[in-house]
């Protein structure tokens, strides 16, 4: 083979190996990043509705809603749902959003409910995402919360409750 041709072939091979290494390196980084993203997303909760007319909410508004202070959104009455007392999602959600555990929330809602100030969230007894989504979807006034990653595309996310990094 002509020495020039031989050199060209070697250069192509080196380039090929180099590009392979670069592609693999970036793929590796991407995989790492995606694992990282997934681990954050797994801790996030979405407050959602089936009503396309509701605009997204601020953190303060969401806090006021789940403390029973805000009972109307854009002039329309809202209904809240909740997971069963034994579901760890419930404790986790209120800890992240309001810094309160399930016993504190229960005492708090007792003060509202037994003074006629607000109706406590409707507990979804089946305790499944499917049951929650079908309850929320049945009326435009209804609002629920669930893990963001578990939600289907046909619901509208009003706010994402993120766990603060420790």
């Amino acid at each position: 083979m002509h020495p020039k041709l031989c050199f060209l072939k070697q250069r192509t091979e080196i380039l090929h190996i180099l590009s392979n290494v670069i592609v693999r390196f970036f793929s590796f980084i991407l995989i790492l990043l995606s694992i990282n993203f997934a681990s954050y997303a797994a801790d996030d909760y979405a407050v959602f509705t089936s009503n396309p007319d509701f605009k997204s909410l601020s953190k303060n508004k969401v806090r006021m809603i789940f403390k029973g202070k805000v009972k109307r959104l854009q002039g329309k009455q809202i209904e809240l749902s909740d997971w069963s007392e034994n579901n760890p999602l419930r404790n986790d959600f209120y800890q992240i959003l309001l810094g309160k555990d399930i016993a504190q929330m229960n005492a708090y809602w007792a003060s509202l409910s037994f003074s006629g100030k607000a109706r406590p969230p409707k507990v979804i007894r089946e305790d499944t995402l499917q049951a929650l989504i079908s309850w929320v979807s049945a009326k435009h006034s209804r609002i629920g919360y669930a893990k963001l990653e578990s939600l289907p595309d046909n619901v509208y996310v009003l706010y994402i409750v993120k766990k603060e990094k420790q």
């Binding site: 229960n106 005492a107 708090y108 007792a110 003060s111 037994f114 003074s115 006629g116 100030k117």
Partner: peptide
């Protein structure tokens, strides 16, 4: 109706709430 005088008046009988 319940008389709304003080902070806990309206749930006065619900000791679990305070």
């Amino acid at each position: 109706l319940r008389l709304p005088l003080f902070l806990a008046s309206e749930y006065y009988y619900v000791s679990h709430a305070y």
